[in-house]
Design a protein around this nucleic acid. Sequence first.
DNA 1: GTGAAAGCGCTAACAC
DNA 2: GTGTTAGCGCTTTCAC
Lengths: 318, 318
Amino acid sequence: MATIKDVAKAAGCSISTVSYALNNDKRIPEVTANRIKKIADEINYLPSAAARNLKKQNTNTILVAISNFGGPVYNELLDGIHNELAKHEYTMVVSTGASSDNMLKQRTADGAIISDINISDKFLRQLSKNFKPIIVLDRSLNNQNINNMTIDNLKAMYLLTQDVLSKGYKKIAYVHGVKDTYDNKTRFSGIQKALRENNLEIFKEYFGNFTKDSGKEIASKIIEESIKPDMLICGNDEMALGIMEVLQENNIKIPENMGISGFDDIQLSSYFTPKLSSIKINHFEWGQKIAKTLLRLLKGATEKSTKELGTLIIRESY
Amino acid sequence: MATIKDVAKAAGCSISTVSYALNNDKRIPEVTANRIKKIADEINYLPSAAARNLKKQNTNTILVAISNFGGPVYNELLDGIHNELAKHEYTMVVSTGASSDNMLKQRTADGAIISDINISDKFLRQLSKNFKPIIVLDRSLNNQNINNMTIDNLKAMYLLTQDVLSKGYKKIAYVHGVKDTYDNKTRFSGIQKALRENNLEIFKEYFGNFTKDSGKEIASKIIEESIKPDMLICGNDEMALGIMEVLQENNIKIPENMGISGFDDIQLSSYFTPKLSSIKINHFEWGQKIAKTLLRLLKGATEKSTKELGTLIIRESY
DNA sequence: GTGAAAGCGCTAACAC
DNA sequence: GTGTTAGCGCTTTCAC
């Protein structure tokens, strides 16, 4: 590995001159700078991030921590964030699980975007003491170094429930995702709010974990029940899809025998028969907004927490 | 930010003792070590990756560079790689576009896994001079520091084509993905090999770019052709899905009027009507294999290039 | 068992 | 315009 010293030797100058030249400092005449750059290139020199980061006390990198790569919701969000960050010469890096912990602890990034319920509030609060801007997408957590930008789950579910009610459904059940998560709780709150305003109560609650498999299990239970709900509002699309699959295999017709709705509007949902009604979030745009906010935070700005609005997509499932 | 110095001061010992204690060096008695660890914790000390990386000349991090987050094929692959790497205390980080370039150049990782055709062979070869193990998944590139682990496209497509032939299809067309990519070329070669062995020739070639939209465009053309193929072998599922959508809208029945096949077996393909026949790759397991190989490479082992086998999934589309 | 000190590869203040 | 040098925060060799 060639270092700045090697370049200096090859160019017959000092390492500071090399450093200046390579960083386009105006004091070095263009001719000299170009000569040095050429030499650096020839001996295959690439600056070491470790040394530079240590000296500059920053990394020019943003970490995005997600709960897993397998889910269908992150893709566009990540592309949106990256799209915006790249415009500003920031490097974006994505991690999950233990890797996120490591990256966060070691301050391998100048800022972080968190969407991983496995990372505890406590850890994040601890971290925020030494780590500048953190934006959380999956919880309501706030302090001088932590901002939250969440989806307006409550409002979206409130609207959806009102629409469901207007279609005449009476026995409305909610299919929970992971119980204590921010998304699940606020989604449920939206339903309850709409129900309450209509002097109704939730007919039944089922408990899943946001996965398709948990939806299937729930559907198996529903099939055996003598008194069934007439509408299932699900915490997300994946559970709704799992439920529909099993229900239909057991000759329960959707929406004739039972209505169902999801949340997220993943791609699959519009291909399923019947097409799933859901709440659509423009994840790409949301990602861009998040990145823009982070960039402002990095510059020292103070930002308010925001809520991203979803739009109700009514298709065939209720 | 607390540094090792602050810990030393607080503990009333030297920084070397702190370093030893924190790294579980056996020379430090457990009592002392625990006391120091507790103090470090109290003052919120976390070691700096930059300093440590600079000193140790490694990062304990693996970079995975992919072409975009939007595609449906990477998810399981990434989870597979991470799953294996995490077992060995490595940090995995994923990047795309310019971020990948930056990470690679700056040696922010000890090794890299590349699946991004936007990164040139030349750049990779250059990089391999200073950067230890690189595994490429999307091309056939080899030198002492670069290994390739690709999908056995040729074999898979050969098998698929033979199956297609056995079903009686005669006018077989190929829908290309991005023309000069390894995946596209080798997939086409597999088809040609099978055709040749049966004294047949490709009936027609269409040119897309692996996206659903390019599939739609191609379908629009096909509709207007007076002499149509009776079978479309597509370079991947996404194009096949796009084609099917448009074809069906125009009353061309699949598989009655025209057969079609994909490659990758993405989740959507089994939900589409008709269900798409494709080549399935177990991306999670493949990811694990890749990580294991990389880990061995990191230890200095020499590895041969490998080809991951796909399995033919015959459903309803031909 | 503990500490002093060198040094990893850079940046930037300062001197000339 | 160019060079000298301190120092970022660690690890590790060498003394004691």
